[in-house]
Design a protein around this nucleic acid. Structure first.
Length: 381
DNA sequence: TTTCACGATGGGACCATAAC
DNA sequence: GTTATGGTCCCATCGTGAAA
């Protein structure tokens, strides 16, 4: 069999009999290469840290509680990682972890860098101090990606998982802007909503390859753009939360012309749990401006609250201005089952069947069934 | 009083989509 | 390329009201 430094030996004894060989160059050369990673200080054999202060883009006073997160800014940790791939399994290693902490008017951005795989435990241990349990992690798709990968790495090294509560900004962002922006990747949202355009940015898919190139060559220039990419991600999280907070506080001023407008229905859903009447007003304004989605949302909200008359007023308006199918069906249901007016219901259903474009077959069949029933009722009356 | 038809609601399955 | 999440759609079940 092979020698004492082999995988066989490691599996049999659980010990590594001699240290891993450097991939290239002497130890002195490797350290020289490490030292040139822009602005980073060495805090362990394989772990490096960079700390920078920038004006906080969050623009919420330190003592105020954010409506969106229920915490003060000082409790937030904006969080993003760069790793060697996408899979959540044992093969995916985090090599750069960026954390943003609001401190007064500033955002303190700390980045922890892992210079080589053997130092992962040391790297993770250095990151541990960041995650105090009373904090709130803020990420973009971090609930699905960053947090599970990080938790897996902690587990692999038998370190207790310290991750605190988590607020993922992707779901609310998607709800608010998917209809107006389309793809809700962070880069797209930066451009369309935050008004930020990245210069010379590295594509996320390119990040693993950049790290592997660095490991092979020990040339830290391969990682300069990755480090910047990570820092911008953290900054954008802070900016995005600021926008979401403003929407939550002043939804009426959400439709700023400089950025993509938020979907009014989603905005109303954001506000409704705390201020139902404000949500109704938002949707009324949306309907008045011709927003059909807002109108339907308004009608169903009124209906769900038992405010049938208001719901019918909204559905009638939608049916009148656009001959809307969903609104028409709601009018027909109300006329048949509540107002006891089968003739009105029949006239609406007939109009829906005649409208252009024709309803699709499954809906058309339901409408024909409803029409036949209403015709029987009309004869009886 | 029983039966039937309808609308409302909840749960499960499937799909799209972010992250590197 | 992987994975989990949220959203959407469909189906089953339940409650209600009308008709026999």
């Amino acid at each position: 069999m092979d020698g004492a430094g082999s995988l066989y030996h490691f599996l049999k004894t659980g010990k590594r009999s001699r240290p891993l060989e450097p991939r290239s160059g002497s130890g002195r050369e490797r350290n020289a290469a490490k030292a040139t990673l822009q602005g980073f200080e060495q805090i362990g054999e394989f772990t490096f840290r960079r700390r920078r202060r920038v004006p906080s883009p969050l623009s919420v006073p330190a003592h105020e509680t954010l409506l969106f997160t229920g915490t003060t800014p000082g409790d937030l940790l904006f969080f993003d990682t760069e790793s060697t791939g996408l899979s959540g399994g044992a093969g995916n290693t985090i090599f750069l972890l960026g954390i943003g902490r609001p401190e007064g008017e500033e955002l303190v951005i700390e980045q922890y860098f892992l210079a080589d795989f053997p130092g992962e435990k040391e790297f993770l241990s250095a990151c541990l101090s960041l995650f105090s349990p009373n904090r709130l992690l803020v990420s973009y798709n971090g609930r699905t990606f960053d947090a599970p990968v990080l938790a897996a790495r902690f587990a692999l090294h038998r370190l207790s998982c310290p991750l605190p509560r988590h607020c993922d900004l992707l779901p609310p962002t998607r709800r608010l802007w998917k209809h107006t922006v389309g793809s809700c990747s962070l880069k797209n949202i930066e451009r369309a909503v935050l008004g930020v355009k990245r210069e010379n940015d590295v594509d996320g898919a390119e990040v693993p390859e950049r790290y592997f190139r660095y490991l092979r060559s020990r040339d830290p220039r391969h990682l300069d753009e990755v480090v910047t990419h990570n820092e911008i991600d953290v900054l954008s999280l802070s900016r995005l939360l600021g926008v979401l907070e403003r929407l939550r506080r002043e939804p009426e001023h959400a439709q700023a012309p400089a950025t993509a407008p938020a979907d009014v229905s989603a905005l109303a859903a954001l506000v409704a749990p705390h201020d139902a009447e404000r949500a109704f007003k938002l949707l009324e304004v949306g309907l008045a401006s011709g927003d059909i989605r807002a109108g339907l949302s308004l009608g169903f909200r009124y209906k769900q609250c038992g405010r049938q008359a208001e719901a019918q007023r909204v559905f009638e308006r939608l049916f009148e201005i656009r001959g809307d199918l969903t609104a028409g069906i709601e009018i027909a249901k109300y006329a048949e089952h509540r107002a006891r007016d089968p003739e009105r219901a029949l006239s609406v259903v007939t109009a829906l069947l005649d409208r252009r474009p024709r309803p699709e077959p499954p809906v058309r069949e339901l409408l024909l069934y409803r029409k036949a029933r209403l015709e029987r009722k009309c004869i009886r009356f």
